[in-house]
């Protein structure tokens, strides 16, 4: 496909209280086949989606947190996290999973594409996007 668009998946909700986070992830996984420029953004309770060490065994729900760690293999190039939301929930980047990315052709590698940004920078990233999926 010749025209590549900038896709932004805006994740605003905690992972297990509602199905939005998981069904958002399903769109990202399926969307990988379309070879677009894909970024994810996590704001408000959405920052909980990236907290490491989650354990859902006692709630009888499928733990999909490990899936986020594979997103680099699904063509996701950036994962932006809202600094204000992180702080409001008493979290820091150390609490979040790391997601590696590698370009198989150019062999360019990034150890961790999870990046904490302030509101102004996030607004800029949103403004640069061609498509915003809001979940």
């Amino acid at each position: 496909m010749s025209d590549v668009k900038k896709f932004m998946y805006l994740n605003r909700r905690a992972p297990y209280g509602t199905i939005y986070a998981w069904e958002s992830l399903e769109v990202v996984l399926i969307g990988a086949a379309f070879d677009q420029e894909v970024s994810l953004m996590f704001v408000d309770d959405g920052v909980f989606q990236l907290v490491k060490g989650s354990d859902t065994s006692e709630s009888d729900m499928k733990n999909f947190t490990p899936t986020y760690r594979t997103l680099g293999d699904y063509g996701v190039r950036h994962m932006y996290v809202d600094k204000t939301s992180l702080e409001a929930h008493g979290l820091t980047q150390d609490d979040l999973i790391e997601v590696a990315w590698e370009d198989w052709e150019s062999e360019e590698e990034v150890d961790n594409i999870v990046e904490v940004l302030d509101s102004e920078e996030l607004a800029e990233k949103l403004g640069e996007s061609d498509v915003v999926f809001s979940f």
């Binding site: 496909m1 379309f34 999926f133």
Partner: peptide
Amino acid sequence: SGLGQLIEAAIQCDRLVVFG
């Protein structure tokens, strides 16, 4: 149909308008 239909629509269209 599949989620590909959503991605395709987002690529093809000038605007994707989300309600929710």
